[in-house]
């Protein structure tokens, strides 16, 4: 049966960017309010899953040529090196540091090293989720 999925594909092209922007917002809101790297990574993965639903595996791998296994490895390396970096300053493992900076256009912001760890968590979550979904979905 020939099906017509023009509406789904056109909606997906808009909604994917809304989901991606919301995941970025959740990711940066993570320190003082609900959110963080894990939820942001899951939301990005669900945006890519929506692309996979509307289009097919070949189109999405052409549009986003990302090796998700390498992405998981980079995230693990980033998280582990941020956590281990505290050892060189004579403080316990996983100790985080922060300070207040005056950034252009943004005003007074606090920059944490915990955010670098969260970036690692984000990359690991997106990589692992997409690896699982692609290896299950590609099974014919």
């Amino acid at each position: 049966m020939k099906t017509n999925d023009v509406i789904l594909q056109t909606t997906t092209k808009i909604i994917f960017f809304i989901i991606f922007l919301f995941s970025i917002h959740i990711f940066f809101a993570g320190h003082y309010t609900p959110g963080g790297g894990f939820v942001g990574g899951l939301l990005t993965a669900s945006g890519i899953v929506l692309l996979l639903l509307a289009f097919d595996l070949k189109t999405v791998t052409t549009a986003l040529p990302i090796n998700y296994t390498v992405m998981t490895a980079i995230g693990l390396l980033l998280a582990l090196s941020t956590a281990a970096g505290a050892i060189f300053f004579n403080v316990p493992f996983f100790t985080h540091a922060f300070d207040y900076f005056h950034l252009p256009l943004l005003g007074k912001q606090s920059l944490h090293t915990a955010m670098l760890f969260d970036t690692g968590v984000y990359l690991v979550v997106v990589g692992v989720t997409m690896t699982i979904i692609q290896s299950i979905g590609a099974d014919d």
Binding site: T3, L8, I15, I19, F22, L43, S46, V49, L50, L52, L53, A54, F55, D56, L57, K58, T59, I133, G137, A138, D140
Partner: peptide, 25 residues
């Protein structure tokens, strides 16, 4: 809302086409 939307789309595609993620369109 996002999760409910994606779940409904996935169920609809499974009912319509019989598979959720196509390898080649």
């Amino acid at each position: 809302a996002i999760l409910a939307f994606i779940g409904t789309v996935a169920f609809s595609k499974f009912l319509e086409k019989g598979e959720i993620i196509q390898r080649d369109n």
